[in-house]
Design a protein around this nucleic acid. Structure first.
Lengths: 232, 232
DNA sequence: TCATTCAGTAAACAACTGTTTGCCGACTTC
DNA sequence: GAAGTCGGCAAACAGTTGTTTACTGAATGA
């Protein structure tokens, strides 16, 4: 019961309380929204609904966000910050391709397990009804692709690859990462068996892609100049 | 304006009118919903909103659907019927891999151009907020994967592949098809330039996967012994 | 021809929505 | 200490929502 916040002073009402309390409410709103978004869409969320879940009054919402869309964008940046950190970490690692693959999958699995609501939110809103949110996600994913392309370029298997080809491959990897994350997310919450099945599948698929990576140069289609338009 | 339904009789109020009119209203509802779903989520849609757009009274809705969810499921089956037909057609084709790739991409591009609202709906609700709809989409995609695996098994490059491996590869292809369709869909409506860019990218990615396909057996991970026998 | 079926309607229901207003009272600064 | 800042609240606003009710009138089948 004796809470003893004790950031600066001893018994007197400590400084910084004001901002801390505000931040607390903000977090409560974000968390409440995240909780509700587990079985709803952002475009179907309501201000009153969120404040009710967060234990605030409806009017309180507007002390923190102008809109629900604004809250949505905040959620996106938050979710992608985590993910971004994680991607960088994976890309910085070194070792044999097969080891990299296994570690990447393990990291994704753990991340989904830890931040499932965030991931679900991203999956849901990637093609969702709110433009600004969609664009924020797309922009961040394209950053991931760029970074992945850069990292791929540093690998010995990529000798002789031009930038467009690296981006092509990176896109494949990023897209695969996304759908693997979605698969983990969709799996029954605690089922390690399902997780292992998904991981094994993803492992083989990534392996197959990396085989394609290794043999690409020898069978590069048309030598890059005579590309016929594929559209219809 | 002269509608001339002419199913049975000639000038007298023709039989079947009743049912035809009902079907017309039903279509109006579905189309209106599809129109609204272009910038909304299913979970954010309203009965009144749909009936207003369709030109019916709110109560009229319940003559056709119990729920908005039910309408959503109808939309899913409708959209996936089209898609299913298309997938079968592509899989039945024969020729060199590179030709198959080009034709597949062309077919996807055309289909997205033709049925953009349906595709957008599928992309949006694949991880959307309505359980039954999500499940319907997932089930159908898994059927696609099975069919693709079967078709892949018939190719000469797949000699020596067991069923699990075929499904693994099929999953890769289907997932890639999905994200390619999403990319086409997200592209500015009429831009052939954007379409060509996406098509070229997808072409290279599919090509790389098919290279992986060809070299898989020689580099199968962990040899062939620590892997369950093909006869599942 | 006449009774029946039934898609579509208007009206009413209570419940809910987003947002603004004025106010309170705890924190902060001087 | 006093003055000011500002997060949170209750109340009120005008709309909207899903769904049910009892009805109308055209298509139907005998």
């Amino acid at each position: 019961m004796s809470h003893t916040p004790a950031p600066t002073s001893a018994a007197t009402p400590p400084t910084g309380t004001r901002q801390a309390q505000k931040e607390q409410s903000r977090r409560a709103l974000l968390d409440a929204a995240l909780r509700l978004l587990d079985h709803q869409n952002l475009s179907g969320l309501g201000v009153r609904e969120v404040t009710r879940e967060a234990g605030l009054s409806p009017a309180g919402f507007y002390r923190h966000f102008r809109d629900l869309d604004e809250l949505g964008v905040t959620l996106v940046t938050e979710a992608l910050e985590n993910l971004h950190l994680l991607v960088r970490r994976v890309l910085a690692e070194q070792g044999e391709p097969i080891e990299l693959i296994d570690r990447t999958i393990a990291v994704i699995a753990r991340h989904v397990r830890e931040y499932r609501p965030h991931i679900r939110f991203l999956a849901r809103e990637r093609h969702g009804g709110v433009r600004r949110v969609r664009e924020a996600i797309a922009a961040e994913l394209s950053v991931f692709t760029e970074e992945t392309a850069l990292a791929l370029g540093a690998l010995p298997q990529s000798a002789g690859w031009n930038e467009a080809e690296l981006r092509m491959l990176a896109g494949l990897y990023v897209e695969h990462m996304v759908s693997t994350a979605a698969a983990f997310m969709e799996a029954p919450a605690g089922s390690r068996a399902a997780e292992r099945r998904i991981a094994a599948l993803a492992r083989d698929q990534l392996h197959l892609i990396s085989i394609g990576h290794r043999h690409w140069l020898a069978e590069r289609p048309g030598g890059a100049e005579q590309r016929p338009p594929a559209t219809e």
